[in-house]
Amino acid sequence: MSTLQWAGLLGLAAFAGAVVPFQSAINSNLARGLGHPLWATLASLLVSVLVLLPVILALRLPLPSLAFISKAPMWMWAGGAFGVCFVALAVVLLPKLGASGFVALALAGQVLASMLLDHFGLFGLVEKQLTLPRLFGAVLLVAGVVLIQFGNSPGRVLAPQ
């Protein structure tokens, strides 16, 4: 992979992370207007489908294999449930933790869970052993989360900023 391709992938990953606080903040406002976080979650996911379907049609993607769909293990369908969990919790927690606090905590959870997935090679991932330097990086990340969430409000635990 060329340096330019690598830089493009890094940029796309950063963009994927950058949209999270915007999505969460917008959905939190939508929840207030619709009267409940789960209505905002449903609306967000419906908009996702409405945006994705024209892209799939424009790319003329073939229909998925019915054989695969019927034989796929149940855990392969859990991604949608995890998506609902993330969107709904973001709607509820972002107004309470602030954008930076929520994203820092979510990122810490993602990194820690990712390290376990990598270490055990779960879900077909290549095994990437949990080493002391990687564990130290996780500790530094958690320390950063603590500083981000509590650094400007001594004595106030999980209070809105």
Rank of each mutant, 00 (worst) to 15 (best):
V111M: 05
G35D: 02
Q23M: 10
R156K: 13
A7W: 04
A43R: 01
Q110D: 06
A40I: 02
Q129G: 14
S153P: 00
M76I: 11
A78G: 09
P54I: 11
A104K: 02
F102H: 04
V19I: 15
G17M: 01
R32H: 05
L122E: 04
L130V: 10
R60I: 03
V47D: 05
F123G: 01
M115V: 07
T3W: 09
F82L: 15
P160T: 07
N152Y: 06
V55S: 12
L125H: 14
V126R: 12
Q129M: 14
G8H: 04
A90F: 05
L45C: 11
H36R: 12
G98Q: 03
L46E: 04
L59R: 10
S48I: 02
V20N: 07
L122M: 14
G11W: 08
H36N: 10
A40L: 03
G8E: 00
L112V: 13
R156T: 11
M1R: 13
L94K: 06
C85I: 15
D118R: 09
V139Q: 13
P54H: 12
L105H: 00
L9N: 08
L9A: 15
M74I: 08
C85A: 15
V91L: 10
S24W: 00
L158G: 04
L12G: 11
L61S: 02
L34D: 06
G109K: 03
V103A: 10
L141Y: 10
P95K: 07
L130K: 05
P37H: 05
A143P: 03
A14F: 15
A72F: 01
L42N: 00
V92W: 12
I148Q: 07
L53P: 08
V157Q: 06
Q23Y: 05
L97N: 00
G124F: 10
F68W: 14
G80Y: 13
A40E: 02
I56R: 13
G17H: 09
R32S: 11
A25P: 02
V91A: 05
G124H: 10
R156E: 07
G151M: 06
A104F: 10
S48G: 15
V111P: 00
G83D: 09
L105Y: 04
A159I: 01
L66H: 14
P160S: 05
A72I: 02
Q161N: 04
G11F: 14
L42V: 10
A99P: 02
F102R: 06
L34P: 01
S70F: 15
A43H: 04
P73I: 12
G137E: 02
A58K: 08
V103K: 02
S70G: 12
Q161I: 00
A81W: 12
P37C: 07
L116Y: 09
K128A: 11
Q110R: 03
A99L: 10
Q5I: 14
L30Y: 03
L116F: 13
Q23H: 08
G109S: 12
V47I: 15
F150L: 13
A138N: 06
A16E: 02
V49L: 15
L34E: 02
A40G: 11
Q110Y: 03
G155R: 08
K96R: 13
I69L: 15
V87Y: 08
G33D: 04
G155M: 08
S44G: 12
P64C: 02
V20T: 11
L53N: 09
L140A: 15
F102K: 01
A16V: 02
C85G: 15
A72S: 06
G124E: 00
L107E: 03
G80S: 10
V87K: 03
F120E: 07
A99Y: 01
S28W: 01
